[in-house]
Computed example of a mutant assay.
Amino acid sequence: MTQRVLIWAILLAFLIDQASKYAVVHGLQLSRRLAIDVLPPVLNFRYGENRGINFGLFDGNSDLTRWILIGFSLIVAGAVWAWVHRKHPGSVPMQVSAGLLIGGAVGNVVDRLVYGYVLDFLNMSCCTINNPFVFNLADVFIFAGAIGMVIFEPRSKAKNAS
């Protein structure tokens, strides 16, 4: 049963990520317009092509970097799948968290395969802080999934007793 939860979480995260990128970047033509103020300054759409990882780290703009990041993402996704399947087969919160992380990672992998980079479009600022960075829903799912996996990781009684 929970294996299905993991698969559904992966599929939903992946489909929501890809649909949002298509709707905003192509449907709203953000790739041509470059900026759309939605609810300034809290929520704006800003077109971004991320060839590295978060915040432009490892932005080598080379095919080698692209393929290394694809391989790394797939290895992490596979390791998370195997770990949660082996260690937490009955935990729905862990299955959902792992599914969000894996679905987000696969969404960004598909971008790298199709475009050569990850499509980013979300920009959020607040309280006189002007955030120059852009991200996407896959990044949100990866972050939320990782946090969920930490929060929902059950602690053994032996660890709590010490």
Rank of each mutant, 00 (worst) to 15 (best):
V42G: 01
I70F: 09
W83S: 10
D120T: 06
A35R: 12
P89H: 09
V96F: 05
A77L: 12
V118H: 08
N108Y: 13
S62I: 10
K87I: 05
Y117R: 12
R51M: 10
N44V: 00
S91M: 02
R32G: 07
I102T: 11
P40F: 03
F121P: 02
R112H: 15
A105E: 12
D120R: 01
R33T: 14
L43T: 02
I53M: 14
V109R: 09
W81Y: 15
L113G: 11
G56L: 01
G90M: 06
G116Q: 11
R33A: 11
V118K: 07
K87T: 10
R86P: 04
G104Y: 05
N50C: 00
M124Q: 00
L57M: 15
V76S: 11
N131R: 05
L57P: 02
C126M: 11
F55E: 01
Y115V: 01
P40A: 04
W83R: 07
L119H: 13
R86G: 07
D59E: 10
L34V: 12
N108F: 12
V38M: 05
L113R: 09
D111V: 12
A35V: 12
L74P: 01
R112P: 13
S31K: 13
L43K: 01
V134E: 01
V134L: 03
N130V: 10
